[in-house]
């Protein structure tokens, strides 16, 4: 390229392209998060350094319990989503061919183009006391009175799994698609059964897809706000809700910043651990 263009205009072009990228990253991503960091260590009254807001987090059981609960439930939701999505992704990638494959895959994707709010609303109509499932149970005689299915941990889990499904199915389908049928056939040809072909050939091949699916689903669950609040009700105890409360309701920005950074730390740690265990790189997994 440099043989075709003079070096100086080439350099100029690079700087011109570099400028918007840097403005975006510095002004909207890096500085705001540094600001959070500064906030979380600043005592607003004395304008001095303090550990107080982190101390508060560890001393108040409600805070750290919510934190742990959010992490554990997010991990569970991730595992559950993987288990549910894998057979579906396998079917789409390996059992279907041509047109029917495209249609079934699109059927998987289209629900997720609809707003999360609408999907959650749908679950509320299904699950609430006066909802569809409760009515069905009474009508079929399986239950004597209205059943409230909302506002439990299981409901939150259901909502999280539902909402993240796409982000698991898509990476799984694309890695499984890249597994040539002949590998599976070779596995059987050499005497393998369903189970060990799955375990020794299919799953090892699908690791990159599994890892990127899990990371995205985990991040989405951890950072979710709508689903726990709407499906879990008042007792949902989700950590993002705590952050919102500190910032918007209590106007305690310092405490909120500390919470936010703790959440970021947790998610980075788990993503890092996930990548380390599976030997994948961040750029490859995300890109």
């Amino acid at each position: 390229m440099s043989s075709l263009r003079t070096t100086s205009t080439f350099k100029l072009g690079m700087w011109l392209l570099l400028a918007p990228l840097c403005l975006w990253l510095v002004l909207l991503i890096i500085l705001p998060h540094l600001e959070l960091l500064v906030f979380s260590f600043t005592d607003p009254e004395k304008d001095s350094f303090t550990f107080g807001f982190y101390q508060e987090f560890f001393l108040e059981p409600l805070y750290w319990r919510t934190f742990v609960r959010t992490a554990v439930m997010s991990i569970m939701a991730t595992i559950l989503t993987l288990l549910i999505a894998f057979p579906v992704a396998f079917y789409i990638a390996k059992m279907l061919k041509g047109r029917s494959k495209g249609i079934v895959f699109a059927m998987c994707l289209i629900p997720f183009w609809v707003s999360e709010l609408v999907r959650t609303f749908g679950w509320m109509i299904l699950l609430r006391e006066s909802g569809v499932i409760s009515n069905f149970l009474q009508w079929s005689g399986l239950s004597d009175g209205p059943v409230e299915l909302l506002y439990t941990d299981a409901t939150i889990m259901l909502g999280l799994v539902y909402t993240s499904m796409l982000f698991m199915v898509v990476p799984l389908v694309s890695t499984l698609d890249s597994l040539d049928d002949s590998y599976i056939e070779a596995g059987y040809d050499l005497g393998g059964t369903n189970w060990n072909v799955l375990r020794e050939i299919v799953i090892p091949h699908a690791v990159p897809g599994i890892v990127s699916g899990c990371i995205i689903v985990f991040m989405l669950s951890l950072g979710n706000y709508l689903t726990p609040v709407l499906l879990g009700g008042k007792d949902s105890l989700w950590f993002t809700e705590q952050i919102y409360t500190q910032f918007i309701t209590r106007f305690n920005w310092e405490q909120g910043s500390a919470f936010g950074l703790l959440l970021l730390l947790l998610s980075s740690l788990i993503v890092w651990a996930g990548l380390k265990i599976s030997g994948q790189s961040f750029a490859k997994t995300m890109g």
Binding site: H33, M219, Y225, T240, I243, L263, L264, V271
Partner: peptide, 9 residues
């Protein structure tokens, strides 16, 4: 990988 809530705040 930054939760949307956090990006907002």
């Amino acid at each position: 990988v930054i939760p949307g809530v956090l990006l907002g705040v």
